[in-house]
């Protein structure tokens, strides 16, 4: 076949090869310009790290040894933090299933998925902390405000991840279900959900991990959990206690990350 045809020497260089390097150089120049601009805007002062290194070392020593005298209350609030994350995540999963399906272009027409997607964008665009501040006003101080904040934000995130999984499914099994005379809802339950289940579980666990992290700060604006204590000890210049609280958060978050990623691996 074609292997007998000799290749002319000039043919080895694809046409337009030179243009690409020019475009790349331009891309890099833009990138460097953005970095320089952002340097000014973000007020980056690396020299201060050297100049004030003595102060910082002094500051650091105040953290040690950590003061665990109040550990019972730290632990209690840390458990509340996990409770906030659990409910915030579970409520979000329950909502993200329908919203995720309703923002999938292969399940519903554009006039459904476009508005639903925009709604989810909005839920995702606002940080948990902002929602927490608003819900503290609405439902009062305490963990429930944190649950509501995580719920809204996580629904937005999970709905997007869920719908991306749905849009990547193999359409043939769905058509197989359709061929039996099944209703549209049955098509989704039997043809779509079995295909996306492993990914959905994996995404949900990942969001739970990250919600434990988020839940540990929503307390700073009064939405319950370990964040409340963290805020108080930092404001009171109790750095030894701050250190103890941070160590507890690190231990909890790391443990949950490790356990959850183990479980996630089972599903992929």
């Amino acid at each position: 076949m074609a292997h007998a045809v000799p290749i002319p020497p000039g043919a080895l260089e694809p046409p337009g090869a030179g243009k690409r390097t020019l475009a790349q150089a331009f891309g890099w120049a833009v990138f460097v310009l953005i970095l320089a601009w952002a340097w000014k805007g973000a007020d980056v002062r690396p020299m201060d790290l050297v100049k004030d290194s003595g102060n910082m070392a002094q500051f650091l020593t105040e953290f040690f040894p950590p003061d665990f005298r109040e550990w019972r209350s730290y632990l209690r609030e840390m458990v509340v933090t996990v409770h906030i994350a659990v409910w915030g995540t579970v409520l979000a999963i329950v909502c993200a299933v329908p919203f995720g399906l309703l923002s999938s272009s292969n399940i519903v027409p554009w006039w459904v998925y476009q508005p639903v997607r925009r709604l989810m964008d909005a839920a995702r665009a606002i940080n948990e902390m902002v929602f927490a501040m608003l819900f503290v006003v609405a439902v009062g101080l305490g963990p429930f405000a944190g649950v509501l904040a995580l719920w809204i934000h996580t629904t937005g995130t999970l709905a997007k991840l869920f719908s991306e999984a749905v849009e990547a499914i193999d359409p043939r099994p769905v058509e197989g279900v359709r061929a039996t005379g099944a209703s549209a809802l049955e098509e989704v339950f039997y043809g779509v959900i079995p295909q996306v289940m492993p990914l959905w579980i994996s995404y949900s666990l990942y969001r739970f991990e990250s919600n434990v992290r988020s839940a540990s700060v929503v307390g700073m604006v009064g939405a319950g959990g370990i964040g409340v204590i963290l805020y108080e000890v930092i404001r009171g210049f109790e750095y030894a206690q701050t250190c103890a609280v941070m160590l507890i958060i690190i231990t909890f978050v790391s443990t949950i990350d490790i356990v959850s990623s183990r479980i996630r691996k089972q599903f992929i």
Binding site: A179, T180, A182
Partner: peptide, 29 residues
Amino acid sequence: RADVGFVFQQFNLVGRLTVMTNVLMGQLP
């Protein structure tokens, strides 16, 4: 469509479900 069985070239079964569930799907309507 319940009265029209369709057999596809690529089978179009739901791979993650059991054979039993795939066959039971014929009952859905």
